[in-house]
Nucleic acid binder design. Structure first.
Length: 262
DNA sequence: AAGATTATCAACCGCCCGAGA
DNA sequence: CTCTCGGGCGGTTGATAATCT
């Protein structure tokens, strides 16, 4: 026999983007009942979705303790270091970032960090220098960084004011690379990840990230639901929200972080 | 201004794993 | 021990937004 039974009866179930109405139903249900059996959630909440879809929507988008927003430089650096040690174990990586989801980190890795590593001459899978023509990529790396910085991150920019900044950034990059190499040269590195927090909590500077953040932060969309600012829904939801701290450890923080959207 | 291209990210799919019967 | 089931994970897709030509 091939394949596998679907997780649920898909016939008649809605797919695709969630509507504000569906979100309301899901939020209200979870607030009122907590998280138990996801399979039952759609039925009980009156949603024509499969349980998996509900879980995904909640954990990746509706949970009030989500941080959202652009990744900081420090976060990005930490993701890179963790990925070097853990590989594509996104949930493990995400566990180091309260308020971030594995999906979010995975997306960020695939769309941004991966490219940066390539620009740095690093293989995003192995985190080692790409042995291209001549295998001397590591030596030209710093120049590559400079080139790519002025190429791609100097958006709308004056080119002359950048030299000084670039020097600083290059120093940081060199330091980062050094740390990074040491990480890989340490044969115990994969073991050390199991035990604890050793290298994960330190931060290094990753200037490409800084440059990028500077150019994109201003335009970063705060896409948290517009319906959350609707008065009618606010009046209905907010009291529930405030009463529900018992269900989730991070709830209080979540409420606070929501305030920015309300 | 309009069409083409690229980037982003929410959401889905299918597999894996652990718990419990 | 084996089987079933649900939750979780990582890979991938596709719609939309942003940017370029």
């Amino acid at each position: 026999m091939m394949g596998r039974q679907p997780c649920c009866e898909k016939v008649g179930l809605k797919r695709g983007p969630w509507t504000a109405e569906e979100d309301k139903k899901l939020i209200n249900f979870i607030l009122g009942n907590g998280q138990h059996c996801w399979r039952l959630v759609p039925k009980l909440a009156g949603l024509s979705r499969c349980g998996k879809s509900c879980r995904l929507r909640w954990t990746n988008y509706l949970r009030p303790d989500l941080k959202r927003g652009a990744f900081s430089e420090a976060e990005e650096n930490q993701i890179i270091e963790l990925h070097a040690r853990l590989g594509n174990r996104w949930s493990k990586i995400a566990s180091h970032f309260p308020g971030r989801t594995d999906n979010e980190i995975k997306n960020h890795w695939n769309t941004r960090i991966k490219k940066r590593l390539k620009l740095l001459g690093l293989d995003p899978v192995t985190h080692r220098p790409i042995q291209g023509e001549g295998g001397e990529k590591q030596n030209v790396q710093i120049n590559d960084v400079k080139a790519t910085l002025s190429e791609s991150d100097n958006v709308g920019g004056s080119d002359c004011s950048q030299d000084q900044e670039s020097v600083l950034e290059l120093d940081d990059t060199a330091a980062f690379w050094q740390r990074y190499s040491m990480l890989w040269e340490n044969p115990d590195v994969s073991e050390s990840t199991k035990s604890s927090t050793s290298a994960a909590t330190t931060t290094t500077s990753f200037p490409m990230a800084a440059a990028e953040t500077a150019t994109t932060a201003a335009s970063a969309p705060e896409s948290f639901h517009s319906f959350l600012s609707e008065d009618s829904f606010l009046n209905e939801l907010r009291p529930l929200w405030d009463e529900s701290a018992d269900y989730f450890p991070a709830w209080e923080d979540g409420v606070q972080s929501l305030d920015g959207f309300l």
